[in-house]
Structures are given as structure tokens and as C-alpha cells.
Design a protein around this nucleic acid. Sequence first.
DNA 1: ACAAGTACTTACCCTAAAGTATGTATCATG
DNA 2: CATGATACATACTTTAGGGTAAGTACTTGT
Lengths: 124, 124
Amino acid sequence: MAAVKASSTIQENKHYALGLCPVTYTMEKIGGYWKPIILYHLSSGSKRYSELKRAIPAITEKMLIQHLRQMEADGLVLRESRPVVPPYVTYRLSQAGQGLKPVIRAMTAWAGKERAGEFGKKKK
Amino acid sequence: MAAVKASSTIQENKHYALGLCPVTYTMEKIGGYWKPIILYHLSSGSKRYSELKRAIPAITEKMLIQHLRQMEADGLVLRESRPVVPPYVTYRLSQAGQGLKPVIRAMTAWAGKERAGEFGKKKK
DNA sequence: ACAAGTACTTACCCTAAAGTATGTATCATG
DNA sequence: CATGATACATACTTTAGGGTAAGTACTTGT
């Protein structure tokens, strides 16, 4: 019945939606668990790789570097390395990355409000 | 070396981070691919289930209902069903859900700005 | 000579999220 | 009496994201 082909993945539809839904577009860039968190830590200024590592203890190095690279490729963060011998690499928000600050700020604000509300309510 | 047990997942650390990082908290609630998209469509007002389905053609029914349920449980959306015979169910943002509008709006604004910029630049 | 610190890289594995494909109940309509 | 619409449910499979662990290169400190 339904003339739905098994071979055509929904990924194609997603691509289609990408062109229409601005939120989808944004999620393609900052979606995933870690990216917003990294952006949050970079929103207060440029940080060294090791600083980020310490700021986000739960992240693995693989994830950290992977997402930094991805966001660098997406033009959200800028990487600067100084060719000194204990390597010195810093990351900071690009122009586009700075533009995400309102998103991060809105998230922070919402979390604050929600968490505050939780204390006013009973657990169950 | 680190006495890290293979059995103890990093989820515990995540839980720890949850208490500290407001962005993490927010991502726990609206993270994932579809939730922000659904919220975006609900931000313009209450919608029927089938309206949402049509508004987001790429989503599967399983994902749609699953995330609606999750967000209902999280107190972000409200479900209202009328016991008529072609079922009539509507979803809308709760008070807390309304509070996410700035986040959605910021995402929308950013996407608009970025996409506009793409036309000004050359492909490569 | 060896540990420690920096900024990564790589191979392998595992699970949770997402997708596919059906099925259900109810009524209206042709 | 079969079809279509509505609002789901559910079993099964796939995939991609994330986690573990270990290694690399270079230099300073002891």
C-alpha cells in the first residue's frame, strides 16, 4: 500500500526541512549534547584547550576536540595556536559564534527560572 | 591508572554537571533533534496533533508522539483531548514552555542572520 | 632516565536515540 | 463493506553519537 519507498531515508526530508525551519538550521550547528556547553564556556572569553577541559570535567578529550573542530569548521569558533613548546592553543567565539550568545543567555535564563521554581514546588 | 571503573558511566559526571551548568540543564529538557522544532511550531499557538504532523513532514509519528509525551511529562506542553469521535487533540505550550520562546526566538534570529550572510559570501 | 604537562590522534566498543513497519479503535462517507 | 481520517501504540532494526583506552611529540623539571 503506501507508496513509501524503503530506500529513501528520512534524511532527505530532513534536508528539506533544513531549508524551511530556522530552528532546524540552528540545531544542525549547535545541536548535540556538548556544543552548547562548550559555547557557554567560551562565551565568557577565549580559553585554552586545557582550560576548557578543566571547566567541563565530564567531557572526554575526544568529544572536546571533536566538537571544537566541528564548530571551527562551521565557523563558530576560532582556533589560535602559538608554536611554542608546551603547546599553547586558545579557542574563542567567532563573529557568528558571538551571535549565539543570546541563545546561550536565553537558555541560562530559562534554566535559572525553572530551577528557582523547583524549590517553590514540592517534589511530588 | 585513575581508579575509574569501567562500570561507572560518565553519566554520573553528567549528572554532576547538570547541577552546575545551566545550559546543560536546558539541554536535558529541550535537547535532541526534534524538541526545539516542535516547540518552534507550538510557539505560534496551540496545534492539533495532525497539524504538527503536517507542519513537520520529516518527523515520524513515533518521534512526534514520543517527544510530545516527554515534554508533557517535563511540564513544557499541555495536552487537551476532546472525547469526540474523530479524536481531537491539541497541544500547546505551558507556562514553562512559553518561557522557552526567547530561546526559540534567539535561534530563529541567529539562523536568519547566518543564512542571510551566506548569500553575501562566496561558496568557497 | 623518567615523570609530568600540553594538545592532540586513533582504534575499538556500546548504547541510546531514531527510523521502519505495522496494528488499533472509532465513526463518516460512498 | 471497504476506505479514509484521527490519534496514537509497539515490536524490531539501524545508526550515529558518545565513551574507553592508549599512543604521539616535544620540552622542562628532578
